[in-house]
Design a binder for these strands. Structure first.
Length: 846
RNA sequence: GCCCUCGUGGUGAAAUGGUAGACACAAAGGACUUAAAAUCCUUGCCCGUAUGGGAGUGACAGUUCGAGUCUGUCCGAGGGCACCA
């Protein structure tokens, strides 16, 4: 019997596939399948999360390939980003070199997994061949009005002289500099994503193959709210304040107006010392959403009053308040303290009148608990609205408002425009220039790409592009006048918002993508990645597709990803030594007295299993695992232990068991090859065939439904079936044919072993002609079924019968069972329940 | 605060309203071996030698001949959104 050397067969088949460049495309071009996994950020080495992502993707890609599909299965690198700049600062090298080195390491590691990736299609977002086209798209968007320049508030790190993302601000301080972060107003570039708010929301309904959870998260993020705008006349002058509300039904309970500190009406106070002090107080609150949410409500009372639109002669004070945001609604509200918690808190603090307008028996009780009543009820104290329900009142008041021409029904979205400017070096330069007269224009497309300079001082404070001696100096192509380049670069989410389009024609020089290739491959049939991208990346990509459609008439597609699958994380136990320092799994030793530290032999405290992370050191290196157990075992384990959408616990015992199973399959294969002819028993043969065919059916169904862990459980069962039939009276040919089918079913999961076994079975190395085994439907019909017999709903016996046994025959068969006879004795059968192929239930007396 | 998801053995988990715990990990016992490793077999809560019986899917109700699965209330864990007017 041949012995197997796992690392030899890994190498053999990886080199076989790589020589063929994984181009196993079928002649049937009609059946295309675009299988895409989220491309990685080249941070240094691959981690188990990548292994899981790409193992799942590879199962789907290979399964589709051997089902006759023409499969696009590419890979690339999300190569721009902050870590490269930070690493460059620490090691005093260029971000480009650092990135390239990481890409080559990670590509080598991914190849060790034996993925069916077509590496000819490899792209990297930091290559000018890629970002050139991104700049082109940016200009297209700009020309169509989808890019705007606006002034907004940002988190400004005064030490680093740069803008920080919200997640880079920790407790109000810069994560690197530890400097107090300021709110600063800056001119920034924005993608006009809010133009598509309603479309992005409505079209979620068309995404039938997306997880409901992701769609819901996007729905909440877009945040549609239906309400109305109302103009309040200012008593002191002819101006008015426009407010937005979703509760126009509470208008009679309005006792104050509140406007944002950035509201145009505040302009006349800007120079007042009191107002300046108030604004200072506001900006002292952090910029994280949580900090804002928990901040105390403070107000600045203006000397203005507004006229209540429905109560003649009633004047209500106007406040400037920190809880009103300028970029939501109109930046102004009317406060109805009785029925809104924030308004209630504010009114209590500034002793503003509280008028109840919705009936509730708990109102006074809630008031003493300092709570507003936000529930349902009928309207009171509201003139012509009295007695109506909230819904009725909303309808009626909106009609009145529209009749009086002081406002109208209005839909508002939470989704804001996407700010894409970053004061960074390692990103795609924004192809815009500033002219002397202050205007801003795009560069001429013939000048693309606007390249990143290599000779930068990475250690300079602020943006190295801005500090570069010559880079930003340029000339306007049309007029020849001097101009200054935009020195901000694009958010890296832009890079990943269209890479899936580039994969359709990654080498094309003239355009971002080829129209024919686009038509053929798009949309992505199956997209696979982490849940952490549920909102931003997926929403931005959906926006990009629409923006491109808006710019190019012949693009018909709106949704880039037809199917989406979000996999769970890879977790591992956490370890701490006696001093509370984190230990990595390879610093742990198993002894009879428990786990000990390899470093000093001290006792180790085992913590809960958590997502693998550098900070907790609970990381297992995929490369070393592959070297020990082989690529198939690593892939197998990570797929077998949990449903792919849930978190999986990594365990060395588990992967070692997978390795043993790989060897067991090899042994089964050898035993079948070495088997001597046996006498045939038609009975054994038939049973085996029926059972085997059923497994093809089940495994096919399970893969189609992404139940990969259950599919693997069935493969274990097939292995046992094969093993137990080697000594039975089954023809060699039948066993061999079944083993070939078995190995084909194994191929998406453990391709190296599968191909090696197939080559032994068929006597040649082959791949192209592999076809997923066919299900014999007539055999499925012949399958026997187990009928369960219950008495009063309790299981009392079972028997195996032919499929579709009639009720009459089933009942008489059931009554022959010893235990059933015993239980039916002296009892009267009141009713028989019979469900074909499933169950018999006798309902009896007593 | 609002919204969503999930609670099944020592563990990861299976189960179109129809045999709960498939499959695997770990454990215990056994076989082989001088021994170990490897491999294989058995066991898994309670009563019983056993055929068998009882309890049992976070808790309590309900619908049903039959509920892990459907409905309601509660408890617990995780996630998303969060001065969004």
């Amino acid at each position: 019997m041949d012995k197997i050397n796992i690392s030899d067969i890994d190498k053999k088949w990886q080199s076989f596939w790589s020589k063929k460049k994984n181009k196993f495309k079928k002649t049937d071009k009609k059946k295309k399948f675009y299988c895409l996994e989220m491309f990685p950020y080249p941070s240094g080495k691959i981690h188990m999360g990548h292994v899981r992502n790409y193992a799942i993707g590879d199962v789907i890609a290979r399964y589709k390939m051997i089902n006759g599909f023409n499969v696009l299965h590419p890979m690339g690198w999300d190569a721009f980003g902050l870590p490269a700049e930070n690493a460059a600062k620490e090691n005093n090298l260029n971000p480009k070199d650092w990135t390239k080195k990481n890409i080559s390491t990670m590509k080598y590691q991914l190849q060790l997994l034996g993925l069916s990736i077509d590496w000819d299609l490899e792209i990297s977002t930091c290559d000018e061949e890629y970002y050139k086209h991104q700049q082109e798209l940016f200009i297209d968007f700009y020309n169509k009005g989808l890019v705007v320049r606006k002034e907004t508030y940002v988190n400004w790190d005064p030490a680093e002289k740069t803008v920080l993302a919200n997640e880079q601000v920790i407790d109000g301080r810069g994560w690197r500099s530890n400097a107090l972060v300021e709110r600063k107003k800056l001119h920034q570039w924005f993608f006009n994503i809010s133009k598509f708010s309603n479309e992005l929301l409505e079209d979620l309904n068309t995404l039938k193959e997306w997880p409901e959870r992701v769609k819901l998260m996007q729905k909440n993020w877009i945040g549609k709210s239906v309400g109305c705008e109302i103009d309040f006349k200012i008593s002191e002058n002819d101006n008015s304040v426009r407010v937005f509300t979703t509760r126009p039904d509470t208008i009679f309970g309005a006792t104050f107006l509140a406007i944002s500190a950035d509201h145009p009406l505040c302009e006349s106070y800007i120079k007042q010392a009191k107002f300046i002090e108030f604004k200072k107080k506001c900006s002292r609150v952090g910029t994280t959403e949580e900090a804002i949410a928990n901040a105390e409500k403070i107000g600045f009372k203006t000397d203005l009053e507004a006229e209540h639109p429905f109560i003649i002669g009633k004047k209500i004070p106007i406040y400037v308040s920190n809880f009103i945001l300028m970029d939501y609604g109109t930046g102004a509200i009317f406060g109805c303290p009785a029925h809104d918690q924030r308004d209630f808190d504010f009114a209590t603090k500034y002793k503003i009148e509280i008028i109840q307008v919705v009936k509730s028996k708990d109102f006074e009780k809630l008031k003493t608990e300092k709570k507003a009543f936000t529930g349902d009820g009928s309207i009171i104290n509201s003139d012509f609205l009295n007695g109506l329900t909230i819904t009725e009142a909303k309808e009626k008041i909106v009609k009145e408002i529209e009749k009086k021409k002081i406002g109208k029904k209005k839909v508002t979205f939470r989704l804001k425009d996407w700010g894409v400017s970053r004061q960074r070096y390692w990103g795609c330069p924004i192809p815009m220039i500033y002219l002397k007269d202050g205007s801003v224009v795009p560069v001429d497309k013939t000048e693309l790409p606007i390249r990143l300079p290599d000779d930068i001082d990475i250690n300079s404070k602020g943006n190295p592009l801005d500090n570069h001696p010559t880079w930003k100096k340029t000339k306007h192509k049309k007029t020849g006048e001097d101009a200054i380049r935009e020195t901000d670069t694009l958010d890296t989410f832009v890079d990943s918002s269209w890479y899936f389009l580039r994969f359709c024609s990654p080498k094309l020089k003239s355009k971002p993508f080829d129209d024919e290739a686009f038509k053929y491959w798009m949309p992505v049939d199956q997209y696979i990645g982490g849940i952490e991208h549920a909102i931003l990346h997926l929403l931005y990509s959906r926006f990009f597709m629409r923006a491109i459609k808006f710019c190019k008439k012949d693009i018909k597609i709106k949704e880039p990803f037809r199917g989406l699958f979000t996999q769970g994380m890879v977790c591992h136990e956490t370890y701490k030594d006696e001093k509370g320092k984190w230990l990595s799994p390879d610093q742990i030793e198993n002894t009879k007295l428990g786990k000990k530290s390899k470093i000093d032999g001290s006792k180790v405290k085992v913590g809960p299993s958590e997502a693998m992370s550098k900070s907790k050191k609970n990381i297992v290196d995929p490369e070393s695992m592959i070297k020990i157990f082989g690529a198939d075992a690593v892939r197998w384990f990570i797929l077998s232990d949990s449903p792919p959408e849930r978190d999986v616990q990594w365990s060395t015992a588990g992967v070692s068991a997978s390795h043993k199973f790989i060897l067991r399959i090899w042994n089964i294969n050898q035993k079948i090859l070495d088997r001597k002819q046996t006498e045939i028993s038609s009975d054994d043969e038939k049973k085996f065939e029926l059972k085997f065919n059923e497994y093809i059916f089940k495994i096919t169904d399970l893969i189609e439904n992404f139940q990969l862990n259950v599919a693997i459980a069935k493969i274990y069962e097939v292995a046992s079936l094969m093993e137990s039939n080697i000594d039975k009276k089954i023809g060699n040919k039948n066993l061999l044919v079944s083993q070939i089918k078995f190995m084909k079913m194994l191929l998406p999961f453990a391709p190296h072993l599968s191909c090696e076994c197939l080559s032994k079975l068929e006597g040649k190395n082959f791949f192209e002609e592999i076809q997923w085994p066919k299900i014999d439907k007539t055999l499925l019909e012949k399958q026997e079924v187990t009928l369960v017999v219950q008495i009063n709903g309790k299981k009392r016996g079972l028997f195996v019968a032919k499929k579709d046994l009639s009720e009459k025959d089933a009942l008489s068969e059931a009554k022959k069972i010893e235990n059933i006879k015993k239980n039916l004795k002296d009892k009267k059968i009141l009713k028989n329940i019979f469900v074909k192929n499933k169950i018999i239930n006798f309902i009896v007396t007593g």
